[in-house]
Amino acid sequence: MKSVRTFKEWTLAELDRTFGLTVADDSPVLKSWLAGQTEISPFEQEVLDSFRSLLVAHVYDWNETELAYNFIGPVMALVRFSSKKFNFFAERSLSGTVDEIEMNGRPDGIIASGFREPQQPYFCLHEYKKEKDPEGDPAGQVLAAMLVAQEINQHRLPVYGCYVKGEVWHFMTLQERSYSISEGYLATRHEDLKAIFSILKFLKTIVSGFMKNEGTDER
């Protein structure tokens, strides 16, 4: 009988032991993603500055849902991931089997192919956590979801991820059984928020490239 585990039950240590995962200290995939060049328009910068002011004022008081509604969601909307072929989806069910272990949950956000509902979540997954007393291991939770996404996509492409704890953003990549985690970006800092937004915009470019390579026009 297969064992069943939810994403929330996993920690990085347990994932490492169970699936033989290794941490890549110098991942070309992560490095390329973080270094991707994008242009931030004056309008986008003005909106980001407004978001940052709101975050500075409230980040230590917001709960997880308030952080998602008031900051993370608006930042994702500003990137405009939505298209006819791939979209940003929130709290959709995701499940799969990794090495005979059935894993499931509802990531706070995923970027997946599909218009009305997610189909292949092989591009990016996010777990949103509040600043104070987060429940569980946010890095482990998002990595567990990324492992399922990897299985759904038959290990064809790297899987991209991100977890947020209050004002701190960490970006992740998974390729085969090796993963990497970026240093934290502090969204209350002007330059760090610009970097976060640029990384997310470049992710959109990566996703669009995947779509074209598979013969699908992403518009």
Rank of each mutant, 00 (worst) to 15 (best):
L78M: 12
P107G: 05
T97L: 07
E183G: 14
H155W: 14
K2G: 01
E183N: 11
K204L: 03
S32I: 03
P158V: 07
Q150R: 14
A139W: 00
Y122G: 14
S95D: 13
L54I: 07
H170L: 07
E66W: 03
N213S: 13
L143I: 14
C124S: 11
I40Q: 08
G36A: 11
Y60H: 11
Q120W: 09
T216Q: 12
D16C: 14
D217M: 09
L193M: 15
D192P: 01
F19H: 12
Y69V: 12
L12K: 13
F115R: 14
R189P: 00
V4M: 10
Q120C: 05
V23K: 13
V164H: 07
A187W: 01
V56F: 06
K212R: 14
T216N: 09
L54G: 02
S208F: 05
V29F: 11
H170M: 05
A77G: 07
R177T: 12
E135R: 10
S93Q: 10
I101E: 07
L78G: 02
F89M: 08
V47T: 14
L147I: 08
S113A: 09
Y179A: 01
N63A: 07
L15V: 03
K8T: 15
K201E: 02
L186P: 00
V79H: 10
M76K: 04
S53P: 00
S50K: 13
T97C: 02
L203C: 03
E176K: 13
A112I: 06
S3E: 14
R156V: 07
R52K: 04
V142F: 02
N87V: 00
R189V: 09
K8V: 12
V142H: 01
F210L: 02
V98C: 02
P28K: 09
L55G: 05
Q175W: 13
R219G: 11
E100H: 13
R52G: 00
K212Q: 10
G114C: 05
T6I: 02
E102A: 09
N70Q: 12
G114T: 07
V142N: 03
P134L: 08
R189T: 05
P107D: 09
M1I: 10
G166S: 08
D217G: 04
L48E: 06
V98S: 04
S82I: 01
N104F: 15
D217K: 10
G136T: 11
E135K: 12
S82L: 02
A195W: 09
V59D: 13
A149T: 01
L174I: 06
H58Y: 12
M1W: 04
E14R: 15
P42W: 12
E46R: 15
E66I: 05
D192W: 04
T216K: 13
Q37F: 08
D26E: 15
H126A: 13
L30A: 06
S32F: 09
K85C: 10
